Simulated assay, not measured.
Amino acid sequence: MAVALGTSPRKLLYDFGSKQELVGAVLAEARRGAERLTHGLPATGATVHERLRAIWTC
């Protein structure tokens, strides 16, 4: 991950404190991204296909 971000593993550990904190931050951001994609979509009444199409077109 550090190479992909253009930094070093030591810098990532310095910034996040531990691998567990880093993974937690990544998962939290992924959750926020999913919430942004699904915000405003109907919770019921839409098929899975319709919900996925709405997400894809966001």
Score class of each variant (00 low, 15 high):
residue 4 A to R: 11
residue 5 L to V: 02
residue 22 L to R: 04
residue 9 P to S: 01
residue 4 A to H: 13
residue 9 P to I: 04
residue 57 T to K: 12
residue 56 W to C: 08
residue 12 L to V: 05
residue 9 P to N: 10
residue 45 G to V: 06
residue 39 H to A: 15
residue 44 T to S: 15
residue 48 V to H: 13
residue 43 A to N: 15
residue 33 G to K: 12
residue 13 L to K: 08
residue 44 T to A: 03
residue 35 E to Q: 14
residue 25 A to D: 06
residue 16 F to Q: 00
residue 27 L to F: 13
residue 40 G to I: 04
residue 7 T to A: 06
residue 9 P to C: 08
residue 48 V to K: 12
residue 37 L to W: 01
residue 2 A to N: 04
residue 14 Y to S: 12
residue 11 K to H: 05
residue 18 S to A: 05
residue 40 G to R: 05
residue 2 A to M: 03
residue 58 C to G: 11
residue 58 C to P: 04
residue 49 H to Q: 13
residue 37 L to N: 04
residue 50 E to Y: 00
residue 30 A to K: 07
residue 19 K to Y: 15
residue 9 P to W: 02
residue 23 V to G: 07
residue 46 A to K: 07
residue 25 A to N: 03
residue 32 R to I: 14
residue 58 C to S: 03
residue 11 K to P: 01
residue 43 A to G: 12
residue 20 Q to V: 05
residue 21 E to Y: 06
residue 34 A to W: 00
residue 49 H to V: 14
residue 42 P to V: 09
residue 1 M to I: 12
residue 6 G to D: 11
residue 5 L to A: 03
residue 48 V to G: 15
residue 44 T to Y: 07
residue 51 R to V: 14
residue 10 R to N: 13
residue 15 D to S: 01
residue 54 A to H: 08
residue 50 E to L: 00
residue 47 T to D: 03
residue 12 L to I: 10
residue 47 T to V: 01
residue 42 P to N: 11
residue 54 A to Y: 07
residue 36 R to Q: 02
residue 3 V to T: 01
residue 50 E to W: 00
residue 37 L to G: 03
residue 3 V to P: 05
residue 41 L to H: 14
residue 10 R to I: 07
residue 21 E to T: 03
residue 12 L to F: 11
residue 12 L to Q: 13
residue 40 G to E: 03
residue 29 E to G: 07
residue 53 R to L: 09
residue 24 G to S: 05
residue 52 L to N: 05
residue 29 E to D: 12
residue 4 A to C: 13
residue 48 V to T: 09
residue 50 E to I: 00
residue 3 V to A: 11
residue 39 H to W: 10
residue 45 G to N: 01
residue 20 Q to H: 10
residue 24 G to N: 04
residue 50 E to P: 00
residue 9 P to Q: 15
residue 54 A to R: 02
residue 35 E to N: 06
residue 56 W to K: 12
residue 23 V to Q: 15
residue 57 T to P: 00
residue 40 G to Q: 11
residue 31 R to N: 12
residue 14 Y to T: 05
residue 55 I to A: 03
residue 32 R to L: 09
residue 41 L to A: 13
residue 41 L to F: 04
residue 55 I to M: 08
residue 56 W to V: 09
residue 23 V to D: 09
residue 8 S to N: 02
residue 17 G to H: 02
residue 28 A to N: 08
residue 23 V to C: 14
residue 2 A to H: 11
residue 43 A to Y: 10
residue 51 R to L: 07
residue 14 Y to L: 14
residue 5 L to E: 05
residue 5 L to P: 02
residue 29 E to S: 07
residue 30 A to Y: 12
residue 6 G to Y: 09
residue 21 E to C: 00
residue 52 L to K: 01
residue 6 G to V: 07
residue 54 A to W: 13
residue 25 A to M: 11
residue 30 A to N: 14
residue 31 R to D: 15
residue 28 A to V: 06
residue 55 I to C: 00
residue 2 A to Q: 11
residue 16 F to N: 10
residue 42 P to Q: 13
residue 33 G to D: 03
